[in-house]
């Protein structure tokens, strides 16, 4: 494989991990946030700055970075999750801007807008990424079909009824928010290892919005749908590189492209492409095994 192809796979993995993180929060527990990329930022900066300045291996500092993002997520969630969903979404935007300005303020360590580039090179990174991505998707899938998945969907549908069945809505939300942020934080480390330079701009509002777009495009209640859409939509601009319109590469128009796609999906299929269906191995087997033309979208 050429290094270009490898880097595309890495890009897809990062996108898949971060959307899996957002899936936990938005699809399961119904919390809509536009600031999740901030956790990528926190984790990436803590990991690589401590690795550099404390001179510890990245593996150790990665744990430190994840712990840091979990702590920040916990502190942020305590007051904000008492708010109604729309106010929570607004606050998340503020939070992500706050993180970006803190990174710029700490110029001495983070190198501010120029970018922090002293990130060690890791051999065989693509395999690590594929492994981590598979593990995280596996874990999120298990979560969805566990008691936590059910309780989350219950609290999303009707918090008052959920409470009357002994579900501690607030604590569960905090738990899920921290978990979601940790998963997104892992994507942050992967991002740093891939590009080997991190800048506050990369984790801004638009990165968070992108995750939500991928999620809603693939199917708001479908993990497989949102992961596939995360991979496809993230790589789409790369495939459009060769196509030019009015002397401009279509790649530059990717934001416009995303917007058009999301408008089309929201108009004709509000639930996203896959809606609530999951693609499962059972369903695929059914499709290829018997030719009775059963649908490939197994309802697991």
């Amino acid at each position: 494989m050429s290094s270009y192809q490898i880097s595309l796979i890495q890009l897809a993995c990062i996108s898949a991990i971060s959307v899996a993180g957002v899936f936990v929060m938005t699809s399961l527990a119904g919390m809509f946030s536009l600031g999740q990329a901030a956790y990528m930022s926190i984790c990436a900066y803590v990991t690589f700055c401590t690795a550099k300045f404390l001179d510890i291996p990245v593996l150790v500092s990665a744990i430190l970075g994840i712990a840091c993002s979990a702590a920040v997520a916990y502190i942020i969630s305590l007051p904000t999750l008492k708010l109604r969903n729309d106010y929570f979404a607004l606050l998340s935007v503020g939070f992500s801007n706050m993180v970006a300005s803190i990174v710029i303020l700490l110029e001495k360590w983070t190198n501010a807008a120029i970018g922090f580039s002293r990130i060690p090179k890791v051999e065989g990174l693509v395999w690590i990424m594929l492994g981590v991505t598979a593990l995280i998707i596996f874990m999120v899938r298990n979560l969805k079909y566990s008691r936590f998945g059910r309780m989350c969907i219950a609290l999303k549908n009707d918090p008052i009824a959920a409470r009357s069945f002994g579900i501690d809505v607030y604590r569960l939300k905090v738990k899920i928010y921290v978990l979601s942020s940790v998963i997104t934080a892992v994507a942050g480390i992967m991002y740093g290892l891939r590009t080997r330079v991190i800048m506050p701009d990369a984790f801004g509002w638009s990165a968070s919005a992108e995750m939500q777009i991928f999620l809603f495009f693939g199917g708001t209640n479908s993990l497989s749908g949102s992961v596939i859409s995360a991979v496809v939509l993230k790589l789409l601009p790369e495939f459009l590189r060769g196509i030019t319109v009015f002397g401009q590469s279509l790649q530059n128009a990717r934001t416009i492209l995303y917007c058009i796609l999301i408008i089309i999906v929201l108009n004709f299929r509000t639930q996203g492409i896959l809606g609530e269906h999951e693609i499962s191995f059972k369903g695929i087997k059914r499709l290829f095994g018997s030719r009775k033309g059963a649908s490939g979208k197994g309802n697991k």
């Binding site: 059910r150 309780m151 969907i153 549908n157 009824a161 069945f165 002994g166 579900i167 209640n221 609530e276």
Partner: peptide
């Protein structure tokens, strides 16, 4: 809970 099947609705009551 409209997002859950009938069986899952009953399960939720046991989940805590």
């Amino acid at each position: 809970f409209s997002g859950l099947s009938v069986l899952d609705n009953v399960k939720v009551a046991l989940d805590f």
